[in-house]
Structures are given as C-alpha cells and as structure tokens.
Design a binder for these strands. Structure first.
Lengths: 242, 242
DNA sequence: CAGTGGTCTAGACCACTGA
DNA sequence: CAGTGGTCTAGACCACTGA
C-alpha cells in the first residue's frame, strides 16, 4: 500500500487489490498471452505486502485460468484458448419461479417397471430389475415447457413413488433425498417422440432441445432423465468473464 | 500428520490431505447438506498443521461449491442444489482434429457489408457502418458439421478479410488477434434457414442445434457468430464432479 | 548458481455471530 | 463473552529451471 502501488482502492483486502491490478492489466492487453509476468518477489516489493498475500492472488488467478505458472520458471499470461463457461442445469421449478411465472406439473405416469437391458446398463442394475419411472410434463404459465421422462434407481430413493410430483419436482426431491456426487449430460437438437409431441402440444417434426442427464452418488447411478423442450420455448444461456 | 489424522497419504501436500479427507467424508454423506462441519481450530488440532493450511483447504472447497462458510458462525456442508458444469465452447478445428478426423472449411462468403440496425446494436456500431462478414461450412471427414455465419467488428480485427479461412478458422484467428475478455452465448434447437440447409445437406425441417455467441474485449464487441449444426451430427456433452 | 514458484508455520488482529 | 472465519505477516525449506 505504498505510493508505487497503483490505485490502492480503499476497503479491498490486499490480496484482492493485487488480483484486481493484475486482472486489469491483463484485460488491457498489457501482457499478451504467453508473456512473462512479474514474479512474486516483484509484486511483493511493488505492493509492500507479504509473499503469501501475493501468492494467494496469483493462485486464484491461476484457478480462474487467467495465468499459468511454472515452478522454477515464472508466471505467464494464459492463452485464453477456450471459452469455458459454467452451464448450470437447475431445477425447472426454481427457474420458472425466478421468472415470476407459474409452474405446474402434470404427472402422466408414476410406476414401477422392469429395467430393459439398455436401461439396466445405464443405471448399473441387472436387466429385469425393478426401476421407478415417472413421466411428467412441466408447464410455465400453462404452456408445456418440458417433458421429463425419468428412471430412478430404487436403492437410492426407495420412497420415490410415494411422492406427489405435482407439488415437488423429481429433481428437487432427489437433491434432498440423495447424496448427489457426479452428473453427466448431453445436449442435442432432435425430435420429440409422437407421445412427447402430443404431451407438449407441438408437431412431431418441431425441433426440440433434448437434454439427457445421469446423476450418481459416489458409488452408483441415481437416475437417468430425458428432458425434451420445444425449441421455440426453451434455450440455454450462459456467459463467460474471467 | 499425527496418528489421530486418518490416512496421511504419503507425498500429498498437507493442505491437499485435509481437503481430500473432507471431500471423502462429504462424498460418503457423513455431513448431510446444511450440517455444521468441524471448525478450523478442530482441524488444526486433528491434523497438527497450522491454521493457514487448514484455511487453504477449506477456501478451495468453498470455491468448488462443496461447503459454505459464515464468519462468526462456522462451516457447513453445502446444498448441492444445482449441477453446474463447465461447458467449453472450443475451436471446431481442434475438436475434430482431436477425434483424429479430417477438417475442411468451405468459404462461401468473405466480404465487407453494411451493418443493419439489429447487427449494429449487437456489435455496438452505428447502423450502416462497415462490418466484416464470413459464411463458412465446416466438414468433418467430408460431412457438413457446422454452418458458421459470422460478423466481425473491423476495429478489433482489421486484417480479418485478408485471412485464408480454409487454413485457419475464424475462431482460432480471433483468439490470436484479439484480446478476448468476455463471451455470451445461447444454445437452442431450431431449424436452419433454406440456404443453411442446402449448405449442410439436410432437409429444411431437420432439427438443428444453434449456438449464437458474442465475444467482447474489455470495451467493445468483437464478433457475433451463429453456428448451426445438424442435430443428428452434433451435440454437447459435459459432466460434473465436485 | 540465482531466481522461480509450492508450501508451511506460528503467530497476529480483526469483524462477526450468538449466548 | 468465547468461538468463528477472513486475512496478513515475516520468516522458512524445498524442488525446480536455466545459465
């Protein structure tokens, strides 16, 4: 916090000041990608702080992908070579509620079935083993937004079939009832099945955004869900800032 | 590293050991969401390390969204309430090359045009101002995979039109030539335009995954791109592990 | 060899919460 | 008030790289 340190913005923790300073100069293009940046020792001198403080700032910038550090060599401005952004797959009920809209869920099916070979493989069960199945249409202000076709491993949520999914979404219930630890998903454009199209009130040829998601505990698969959205009514958005 | 500390795995830094221990117990469900976890002081005693070391482990777990910390109160197991995953939008050329396939780009248009009102607004230019435009079809092993309709702010990349986009993708060129700082995107299912369908060799009614992406420097918009992919040939995948 | 980052320590002061 | 986390310091030892 000495005169040589630029703009010592009041009330910001020292490590955050160092971080902000570096981020600003990176954003201004003062260190083009791949270029050697000031060493910890130089920043220590410049800001008159301890090395741990500078180190924290640099470690966090590294975690954010803005810089690269090599032991024994130095710190480099990172190549921003990919735009990686956080895509959040959330509970649809929350999403709709946040928009101030009304969410309604129509439960089309809620039953126990026998796992087909493919399904058993996906959930890590034996073919023919009992599996819980729900088919639910979610509406936003009365308009069908998502058709949720879901299979659940009974071992992970034994009470699944006893829930009233007109009141709680399966996503929400499973978040509460199970120890989610891992998830896997794919996002595709495709067509709804005939039944799904009917439930969504769209033409069978209408493009749909289809998300297939599997979640796991530490050990086993919890659920497999196919989420079909009319392309004209639902999209994903995101942004990326370092 | 005392006998009371469980499994002091050799050759892992102390902060990483603490982190791994907590992560393991969280994954095992030993601390259900919302529950009070050991304090820093308790972990200091348990692992016989300094508080800064424990603090680093906890801070990183917090950054990963696994725990929540409240000053004056304590550390709590987080509600894993959303599955947020890193979605990486990459250079298509790299993506195809990584699959060991052959990438080819057909440049359909490469020109200077005048910005329409809408486009000018998106790029922060005046209506009627000159804008660079390219229309390129990307093929994977000869099969059309993406139709890339892109507008570029001339101020950010004055030499854009002089590039040979059969050899370098616009994405790659712009990564090198500009100081990308922010990006925004949407992902939708929709239909290609008639022209796009012809270029992609699909029926105009075929569902497509459409990504619209805008990138920015610190100050101004760099580029607006509409990326149209045949739904049967392209999808996004991701996973999430804490 | 000097310079780099990776990590740790044993203390410190502080703001905050809840009893 | 005692307990919590947020942060900082001034030192330390180490592994690593390149000259």
């Amino acid at each position: 916090m000495v005169s040589s340190a630029p703009a010592p913005l009041a009330s910001l923790a020292p490590y955050a000041q160092v971080k902000q300073y570096l981020k600003g100069r990176l954003g201004a293009g003062d260190w083009p990608p791949g270029v050697l940046m000031p060493s910890e020792a130089e920043l220590v001198a410049q800001f008159s702080v301890s090395r741990m403080t500078v180190n924290r700032a640099l470690r966090e910038l590294q975690a954010e992908g803005l810089i690269e550090r090599v032991q024994g060599v130095g710190t480099f401005a990172a190549q921003l070579h990919k735009v990686s952004s956080t895509l959040t797959l959330r509970d649809l009920h929350e999403e709709i509620a946040e928009r101030g809209h009304h969410h309604e869920a129509k439960v089309v099916a809620q039953e126990e079935v026998r796992a087909t070979n493919g399904l058993a493989g996906q959930l890590g069960l034996k073919p023919g083993a009992p599996v819980f199945h729900t088919l639910i249409v979610h509406l936003e202000n009365g308009v069908p937004l998502q058709c949720e076709d879901r299979y659940v491993n009974p071992a992970c949520a034994p009470d699944y079939l006893a829930q009233d999914f007109a009141k709680t979404t399966p996503t929400h219930y499973l978040f509460e009832a199970t120890a989610l630890w891992r998830a896997q998903y794919s996002i595709e454009a495709g067509r709804a099945t005939k039944d799904e199209a009917k439930l969504l009130g769209i033409a069978p040829t209408d493009p749909c955004l289809i998300i297939v998601r599997r979640t796991f505990t530490t050990d086993s698969a919890i659920t497999l869900a196919r989420l079909v959205h009319p392309g004209t009514r639902y999209g994903l958005e995101g942004h990326f800032t370092p």
